[in-house]
Design a protein around this nucleic acid. Structure first.
Length: 823
RNA sequence: GCGAGAGUGGCGAAACUGGUAGACGCACUGGACUUAGGAUCCAGCGCACUUUGUGCAUGGGGGUUCAACUCCCCCCUCUCGCACCA
């Protein structure tokens, strides 16, 4: 054997992958009484090829899965495909392939790529959401939610692209134009289906407290997204009519400071108020302009506050004052009641508006140290204070006044305490082809009729033949022409498909019984495997996917399928893979193809590097040279093992009777077990785990070069290194395990146990400081007393040099660490 | 603007509840072995200087402490999320 021998990663990885394919070692089924562990990585969209982000995500998940197996857990680790979505339709248009064919081709290719990474999935659980065997259950869930009143249809304004003939999500509208065809987007009123996620707003918010295994950041983002606020809903009677204007405010304490009202341009009352008045034309023009501006505006810019007087007035029920009603461009119809009471002295937006249109600014909350004057104020005072000019509430503290004012409004009958959420119901209608059809039928006489359960699935037409139509369903007459299941009359099938986020909201539950033919989820299987113990994915899903999944979990629980409240006990949000300081992207031309790397270095090396270069939650800077380093390390281990094959016959270690060098290696081995286990347990910091193993390997090499090492100790050191490395570089470790004469696979081995006695240091290096600066070091026995240590330190030659013979004022001894002499 | 996180060698990064700053790896430098080396092995590698040593160093400035990457205050920069939510 030459000393530059390298292991044949191609042969080895192929060999073990083949064996895993045949033996299916990761196939699992429920074993009540055995402790389960569910590891899940966010499933990929089958876009064509895997990218570095996938490599990182799945490497992390695989280490956790394999590590937990070695610790005796019964591990479920599934993989599948989030297979519906717009790119398939784009590809279909561009290349004349059917979306289904494109998707399944991609899945086949990417599955092979994942298998080439040696990931330990239970492939028997694989699922693709575009398969009718999956989405039929989603359709059933939809119907059950419909029955429970959790689904409804309503008319709303959407962003419509006339060229593409579809609704666009807000993030797909760029500067008022369609992201795909660059044509102007127009508002369009149309019917759509909604999930009543707001019914669960309180529970989604409250249960965030249970998610102690989630990053604080994600919990905060969700909390803000739900945006619960408590306040007062208050009716302001209109001056010259029977009607009233209802507003929502979180600051009822400022209600005596109201000097005008602001309505959203879309507010239905506006049209009533201006009909036939002098202001009508002006207001209509303002509304038209504002809606255009809002479409145009990119998300970042805050528009200048503008408004127009409607000519109408209402009455403040607290003090009987007349209040002018404005339409304002900054009031959102979607939040609260779409109408705001304006208190310019205590709200910055109202303040700017009032200054612009010369409306009165009346302070009614006086802060502690100054007295506000409406004419002199430069900004609104939004803090707390004492009420002024507020009728019977004058003199109260603002916090207290909030409650008193709400109580008063309730007693008088013109207001009530109200809780408002920022969260909206989830619009799931898409006018696209490549999605799960919504299973209802519109009948002219019966209205909306659910498709009978025994007629599910409503299959996407054309998906089973390569040249089948993939036009949007509303253009496929043979699809939508049907008869009413209830009365038999001619009827029309719903042609909307579901948002693809619906599929990913429950796939983790379907994985527990992916072939179940009688229900969406097998209750027993779900009860055994759920919740997911560790979920891993990019932080970009912090809100939508994770919130929807939490919502679905609660719905599935209420439908009787699940017994859990939350789907993911622990969440790891991994950082991005970047190169040259930027996220990898085609447009930047800094993409590294994982398959090329695997071809060149082998999967184990690629896995090792992606785990070593940074802790998982942080961004990972890709570095080609670093991959060489990982490869070099594995080859060093390979040579070390091959050069010492003879030690693997040795027996167990006789701890107390070792020569110093062997004792050193024995100690290092156990210290390494402790460090690696800690690094994984505390926060999955594989980078430090790997460096600890590298130290062990380096130490083994160094000691072997200079000493004769006890065979048993050496065996244990090498075996330990392989066992600790196995979750990260499985092919390599299996091969090493085999060539070192182990009959069983390393996958069947247990995670090594740490022996504190073996790891104990008998000698320590103690730092000696003078006035806090390191001046000397002492080698001492580990059990030395503080007194002895002080004496040794004071007697040290180098210490004398720095104390200059002065007496010590103070001597601090930190056990096992240092002595600091203060003079 | 609001919220969260992060700033440590040429680079990726370590440092447990305050206790040797820079583990481990990359790059680099010198050497060995070689027909050769982009292989392997050995040694060096924060910066500065008057180089068997000393001083200065964890974004900047203060502070607490015998001792600060770590705790407190102020400021700067970057990343991410939210952004007229009444």
């Amino acid at each position: 054997m030459k000393n530059n021998d390298r292991y044949d990663f191609r042969a080895i990885e192929k060999k073990w992958q083949q064996r895993w394919e045949e033996e299916k070692p990761n196939r699992v089924s429920e074993e009540p009484g055995r402790k389960k562990y569910y590891v899940l990585e966010m499933f990929p969209y089958p876009s064509g090829r895997i990218h570095m982000g996938h490599v990182r995500n799945y490497s992390i998940g695989d280490v956790i899965a394999r590590y937990k197996r070695m610790q005796g857990f019964h591990v479920i680790h599934p993989m599948g495909w989030d297979a519906f979505g717009l790119p398939a339709e784009n590809a279909a248009l561009k290349r004349g392939i059917h979306p289904a064919a494109w998707t399944y081709d991609n899945i086949a290719y990417m599955r092979a790529q994942l298998k080439a990474m040696g990931l330990s999935y239970d492939w028997d659980r694989e699922l693709a959401t575009c398969n009718p065997k999956y989405y039929r259950w989603e359709q059933l869930l939809f119907l059950q939610m419909l029955e429970k009143g959790l689904v409804y249809r309503k008319e709303t304004t959407v962003n419509w692209c006339n060229d593409c003939q579809t609704v666009l999500a807000r993030e797909q509208v760029i500067d008022g134009a369609c992201w795909r065809c660059d044509q102007p987007v127009e508002p369009k009123t149309m019917h759509g289906w909604f999930f009543r996620i707001t019914d669960y707003a309180d529970e989604l918010l409250d249960d965030l407290d249970q998610l102690t295994g989630w990053p604080e950041k994600v919990v905060t983002m969700q909390r803000n997204w739900i945006g619960k606020s408590r306040g007062l809903a208050c009716d302001f009677p209109l001056e010259n009519s029977e009607g009233k204007l209802t507003i929502f405010t979180t600051r009822p304490d400022t209600i005596y400071g109201v000097t005008f009202m602001s309505l959203a341009p879309e507010h239905p009352l506006v049209q009533e108020l201006i009909r036939g008045t002098e202001q009508e034309a002006e207001v209509q023009e303002f509304i038209r302009q504002t809606l255009v501006e809002k479409q145009r505006a990119s998300v970042e810019d805050e528009l200048e506050k503008k408004g127009v007087f409607t000519g109408a007035w209402c009455i403040n029920p607290f003090n009987g004052e007349r209040v002018p009603i404005y339409v304002a461009n900054f009031v959102l119809m979607e939040y609260g009641t779409g109408a705001v009471m304006a208190v310019p002295a205590h709200d910055q937006r109202d303040f700017e508006f009032a200054r612009k249109y010369n409306l009165p600014i009346r302070p009614v909350i006086q802060p502690q140290d100054t007295i506000l004057d409406g004419t002199a104020m430069e900004a609104a005072w939004e803090g707390p204070g004492v009420l002024a000019d507020s009728g019977p509430f004058t003199g109260m503290a603002s916090g207290e006044a909030r409650k008193a004012i709400i109580r008063h409004a309730e007693e008088q009958g013109f207001g009530r305490a109200q809780t408002t959420y920022r969260l909206r119901d989830w619009g799931i209608s898409r006018q696209r082809y490549w999605g799960a059809p919504i299973p209802v039928i519109h009948c002219p006489s019966c209205g909306i009729v659910p498709v009978p359960e025994d007629e599910l699935p409503v299959v996407l037409p054309g998906a089973d033949s390569p040249d089948g139509s993939h036009a949007p369903l509303h253009q496929q007459e043979s699809f939508y022409r049907t008869t009413c299941p209830s009365c038999g009359a001619e009827a029309r099938r719903e042609t909307d498909t579901m948002d693809t986020f619906v599929e990913s909201s429950w796939y983790f539950a379907r994985y527990t019984s992916p072939r179940e033919e009688n229900a969406p989820i097998n209750r027993e299987a779900a009860a055994y495997w759920l919740p997911v113990d560790q979920y891993i994915g990019g932080v970009e899903h912090a809100i939508l996917h994770l919130l929807y999944s939490r919502f679905f979990t609660k719905v599935l629980r209420d439908l009787g399928y699940l017994q859990i409240d939350e789907p993911f006990t622990n969440l790891l949000t991994q950082g991005m893979v970047i190169k040259d300081g930027a996220k990898m992207s085609k447009s930047k031309g800094n993409v590294v193809d994982p398959s090329d790397l695997i071809e060149q270095y082998g999967a184990d090396t690629v896995r090792l590097f992606s785990l070593f270069a940074a802790p998982p939650e942080r961004d990972l800077e890709w570095n080609a040279a670093g991959v060489d380093g990982a490869s070099r390390f594995l080859n060093r281990v390979y040579r070390l093992v091959r050069a010492n094959l003879d030690c693997f016959g040795a027996g167990s270690v006789d701890g107390p009777n070792l020569d110093p060098a062997s004792r050193r290696l024995y100690r290092k081995t156990h210290q390494t077990i402790a460090r690696v286990t800690d690094s994984i347990e505390s926060n999955f910091h594989f980078n430090t785990a790997i460096s600890a193993i590298m130290e062990l390997v380096n130490e083994t090499g160094t000691l072997l070069a200079e000493h004769t090492i006890d065979r048993a100790v050496l065996r244990e050191a090498l075996e330990t290194a392989l066992l600790l490395l196995f979750p990260m570089v499985p092919h390599f470790c299996e091969e090493m395990w085999e060539i070192t004469g182990h009959g069983e696979q390393i996958a069947a081995a247990r995670w090594p146990t740490f022996d504190p006695e073996a790891a104990r240091e008998d000698e320590l290096t103690i730092v000696v400081q003078v006035n806090g600066k390191v001046r000397s070091r002492l080698q001492v026995a580990a059990d030395i007393s503080d007194e002895e240590l002080k004496e040794l330190a004071m007697a040290d030659e180098r210490v004398h040099k720095f104390t200059g013979g002065k007496a010590a004022k103070k001597i601090i001894v930190v056990k096992r660490k240092l002595v600091n002499i203060v003079v």
